[in-house]
């Protein structure tokens, strides 16, 4: 078989775009979850309330230092297998949702750090100036501080998103068998002579997904950068 025939054979025998679609869906929902949880945690970490700060810090320390694979297995074998908590009656949906939860709670720790570092890019003088012209807490936060903080958080958030997309392959550990790494494994097992080609197809798929996001966040963070 020529190279093109091999590629044609692989694409007709296996639904490769469908596998990527599963990862994109996982990443999309997990990104929303991580953004929500991470932002709440980030705000907790900069709040003046010690118990909330402590909670935010503990969460980040625990989740950031645990391998994602451990989190996934813990959810499936521990939470589902032993504690019998189900997220959906159907098996496939259930594990898909567990994978999203795992990805979301893991990356929330990094979103939290991104949010915090965004807030920390705002110089103290900005807050003092806002107060000096008579703005109280909420208007100061809304009009002066958060707009600058969000701009500072764009680049780190983009990195978290890239990591999240790549890490969505770890859903394999949560028994999601339709995502890219599992499909690639099956394809190589049955077509050992095309290992390199199969790997390159999936690898390039991720390059196409990930590199534009990198370019976009760099461009965005430059454009949005607050010149100081």
């Amino acid at each position: 078989m020529s190279l093109f025939e091999q590629i044609g054979f692989l694409f007709t025998s296996y639904d490769i775009p469908a596998a990527f679609w599963v990862n994109i869906q996982l990443s999309f929902w997990a990104a929303i979850g991580a953004l929500v949880i991470g932002t709440v945690l980030g705000l907790m970490r900069v709040s003046p309330v010690p118990s909330l700060r402590w909670l935010g810090t503990s969460y980040v320390t625990l989740l950031r230092n645990t391998p994602l694979t451990v989190i996934m297995l813990f959810l499936v074998l521990g939470v589902w297998g032993q504690l019998k908590i189900e997220l959906a009656p159907d098996f496939n949906t259930n594990f898909f949702l567990f994978a999203i939860v795992g990805l979301a709670i893991y990356h929330a720790a990094f979103v939290c750090e991104a949010v915090r570092s965004g807030i920390n890019t705002v110089p103290l003088g900005q807050a003092e100036a806002a107060r000096a012209i008579g703005l109280s807490f909420l208007p100061a936060a809304r009009l002066v501080l958060l707009p600058q903080a969000v701009r500072g958080a764009v680049a780190p958030l983009g990195n978290v998103l890239i990591a999240l997309i790549k890490n969505s392959t770890v859903a394999a550990a949560a028994s999601v068998a339709t995502e890219t790494s599992s499909v690639m494994k099956t394809m190589i097992e049955f077509n050992g002579n095309m290992t390199v080609l199969i790997f390159m197809i999936f690898a390039l798929g991720y390059v196409i997904l990930v590199v534009p996001i990198g370019l976009l966040t760099t461009w965005g963070s430059r454009r949005l950068a607050v010149s100081r």
Partner: peptide
């Protein structure tokens, strides 16, 4: 450098694992 940073580690691991076997 750009290529290997964009590809998920797990994909590389699985491809190497099976590829080395063959």
């Amino acid at each position: 450098v750009e290529f290997f940073r964009a590809v998920p580690v797990l994909l590389m691991m699985i491809a190497l694992w099976l590829g080395l076997g063959f």
